[in-house]
């Protein structure tokens, strides 16, 4: 289990990184924390000819809140650093909460927020959280910059809107919908990828839910947002009826996959159990 041969560059500027990445004859690929990529290299499931390490590009290492109150997380920001950042904990606790479920601390110490998003394992936590938080993604390539919404960012399993010669330079989170949030998942072992998981974000106004976001991971090739459930909850308090209604809608909307860990049926049931738990927790957090 050793990687095949490749070359390595650690450019000191974004321009240089983009230039290196343009060398698609060598199948250049971005390397950040490497916690998803290097296992694939070791198993020779990925065979890039050139790795472009972007963690030494100064403009990618930022984590800050801009004047409009949006959180910017640069491509080189490690998951552990993001989860520990006071501005994240205060304003985007769902993001910190999702990160806490990623692998083990030893992985989060190196893995980056953007790396996990670009890798896009459908069972991963951050894609679901970023969709729930309506994140926007800044992508830089030979053609310049573009911004993509979370709806458009995730294309399919292990596929995103980021082209092979492009870099996700940062992910930007608008202010969270409200104080209500929860990230819950089913794992067999602590630290595993979620068999199924859910991110919930909501606000509470006059004892009613607003701006409800319900997004599942592990429930399909993409993070699955359930607008039916969201709108059923919108504008009402979280009582038993609301909970059961949303759970039923989510159950009907999901078409989860099966694998060695769980059947589709179990995932659907598990998603519903999690949703009950997560909505309750998110609602209680707003009290």
């Amino acid at each position: 289990m050793k990687p095949g041969p490749f070359d390595y560059e650690a450019p000191a500027s974004l321009t240089e990184a983009v230039r290196l990445l343009a060398d698609q004859e060598r199948e250049a690929k971005v390397l950040a924390g490497g916690q998803s990529l290097i296992p694939m290299l070791n198993m020779r499931l990925a065979r890039p000819g050139l790795l472009v390490d972007i963690t030494r590009v100064p403009e990618l290492s930022g984590l800050y809140v801009d004047e409009a109150g949006h959180l910017h997380v640069g491509a080189a920001v490690r998951q552990a650093a993001a989860a520990a950042a006071p501005e994240v904990r205060a304003g985007w606790p769902l993001l910190a909460g999702a990160i806490a479920h990623i692998g083990h601390p030893q992985i989060r110490n190196r893995g980056t927020v953007c790396g996990s998003l670009v890798h896009h394992d459908p069972a991963a936590e951050l894609p679901a959280a970023s969709l729930a938080l309506e994140a926007r993604f800044t992508i830089v390539g030979p053609g310049g910059n573009r911004t993509v919404t979370a709806e458009d960012f995730f294309v399919s399993t292990f596929q995103t809107a980021v082209g092979p010669d492009e870099i996700l330079t940062e992910v930007v989170f608008p202010p969270a919908p409200g104080d209500g949030w929860s990230f819950a998942e089913h794992v067999q072992r602590r630290g595993d990828f979620a068999a199924v998981g859910v991110a919930v974000a909501l606000a509470r106004r006059q004892n009613a839910m607003h701006r409800v976001r319900v997004v599942f991971c592990g429930a399909g090739p993409l993070p699955v947002r359930v607008p039916e459930a969201e709108s059923a909850l919108e504008g009402r308090p979280l009582d038993a009826e609301a909970l059961e209604g949303a759970t039923a809608l989510a159950g009907a909307a999901l078409d989860p996959p099966k694998d060695v860990h769980a059947s589709a049926e179990w995932r659907r049931e598990g998603a519903q159990t999690l949703l009950r738990q997560a909505l309750t927790e998110a609602w209680e957090r707003t009290a």
């Binding site: 650690a10 490497g34 916690q35 290097i38 296992p39 963690t55 190196r110």
Partner: peptide
């Protein structure tokens, strides 16, 4: 900080 040395390239550790 503890990290996996099997998921880290030597060149990344400069």
């Amino acid at each position: 900080v503890p990290v996996r040395s099997c998921l880290t390239l030597t060149v990344q550790c400069a």
